[in-house]
């Protein structure tokens, strides 16, 4: 299926990417090519087939409900690009 530049812009917003004009152009072509290739899946009859989400289908795995030490705050913040020793700092969340 052909993918339009508008599709690519929409998906970039969903994926939280900001693409340059050049990237939008090349991705429109490349994604179209790849999706056209992938479209061959449509010819497979899967009417009575259950989707397979995992390679080895597992039963539920439960962890004991006990309190354990978590990552100390200092370590949790150590890799953050911006923090005040208490919390992560982010730009304003609500629009102005």
């Amino acid at each position: 299926m052909a993918i339009t530049r508008a599709d690519v812009e929409k998906v970039a917003r969903l994926a939280r990417l900001r693409l340059s004009e050049d990237e939008l152009t090349s991705l429109t072509n490349e994604l179209s090519q790849i999706v056209t290739y992938v479209d061959q899946l449509a010819e497979v009859d899967t009417d009575a087939v259950e989707p397979m989400t995992h390679a080895i289908e597992l039963h539920n795995v439960f962890a004991d409900d006990v309190v354990r030490p978590s990552l100390p705050r200092e370590q949790a913040l150590a890799n953050a690009p911006s923090h005040n020793d208490q919390a992560y700092l982010v730009p304003p969340v609500l629009g102005d």
Binding site: V49, P51, M52, T53
Partner: peptide, 11 residues
């Protein structure tokens, strides 16, 4: 796409 691929995965 996604659901279809999961079915082909089982096949």
């Amino acid at each position: 796409y996604y659901l279809k691929a999961l079915k082909v995965r089982r096949l």
